[in-house]
């Protein structure tokens, strides 16, 4: 029996069993001719390599506890997130895209991370890798995924509703006024996912942080506290980054109060 504060250390055999399950799923997609086998297989290999590398990197950072190195790791995550969003939005060509993505992530996610570390968790030392890296990763990746969806939708809104946007501009709307219905639709679409999660969390699924804390031996209420904090932080990061990025992108697309697409 595992007591409070203890946890089961997984053996490589256990990892192998899980990998077999994954491989079985890949084989099943091949049998069903779903054309997912290659992507799923590559995904499994990438996840293995990337997570193992991250494990070694975080382990190194935790042993050394060099604040600058930990902050540098967050900056690298942020940079990679920016590149990932720009890569996913490759086909959405509009002026000001890079600025929107950078502003959204830097102004939307970083302050939330800062509040999480300085105001909520308050570890000692402050920039302890044990907290900074995992929380930073969650906040930045949540903002990254949501922002990609919001900017993709915003671009589609302007393309498919160009006539409506121009009609508003022609009636004397400023760029911000003409863009507002489309920013609202895009941000709402992006935010609905996290809001749905907030509604169902704890009832249907127990998210990763709480699961991790429970399996790591933390008390259930303390694990729930952590999860509540993380959910609020994720919602804030999603919201701030989406609104900032969408407003920046809209301002660029409607610069000079005309549709520049």
């Amino acid at each position: 029996m595992v007591g409070k504060g203890e946890y089961v250390v997984l053996s490589w055999d256990g990892v192998f069993v899980a990998a077999l399950m994954g491989a079985a799923a890949v084989v099943y997609t091949l049998i069903e001719r779903l054309r997912l086998g290659r992507e799923a297989g590559i995904g499994m290999v990438r996840a293995f390599v990337q997570l193992l590398a991250a494990g070694y990197a975080i382990g190194w950072l935790m042993r050394r506890q060099i604040a600058y190195a930990n902050l540098l790791a967050v900056c690298i995550m942020l940079l990679v997130a920016i590149l990932v969003v720009l890569g996913r939005l490759r086909e959405q060509r509009f002026y000001g895209k890079i600025r929107a993505v950078v502003l959204g992530l830097v102004l939307g996610a970083l302050p939330v991370l800062l509040v999480a570390i300085v105001g909520v968790v308050r570890p000692k030392p402050l920039f302890d890798a044990r907290y900074l890296i995992p929380i930073g990763s969650m906040v930045i990746s949540a903002a990254m995924n949501n922002m990609t969806q919001v900017l993709n939708r915003l671009h589609a809104e302007f393309v498919s509703n160009r006539g409506e946007v121009e009609a508003r501009l022609l009636l004397g709307a400023t760029a911000a006024q003409a863009a507002h219905p489309h920013i609202r639709a895009s941000v709402r679409a992006g935010m609905l996912r996290i809001i749905n999660v907030l509604h169902s969390v704890g009832l249907v699924h127990i998210p990763g942080v709480m699961t991790g804390q429970l399996t790591g031996g933390m008390g259930a209420i303390h694990a729930a506290q952590y999860q509540i904090v993380i959910m609020y932080l994720l919602m804030s990061a999603n919201c701030f980054s989406a609104i900032i990025a969408a407003k920046s992108a809209a301002a660029a697309i409607l610069s000079n109060e005309r549709v520049n697409l």
Binding site: G163, E164, A167, R168, L170, L171, G172, A173, T174, E257
Partner: peptide, 30 residues
């Protein structure tokens, strides 16, 4: 500024585009 200009010079495009809502809401939009 273009939005000031467009309150003096109105353009009705060839393809009519109406906004969601009632006709009154459309007319009072500007």
């Amino acid at each position: 500024q273009p939005h000031i200009l467009r309150r003096k010079v109105a353009l009705v495009p060839q393809e009519p585009v109406v906004f969601s809502g009632t006709v009154f809401e459309n007319i009072s939009y500007g």
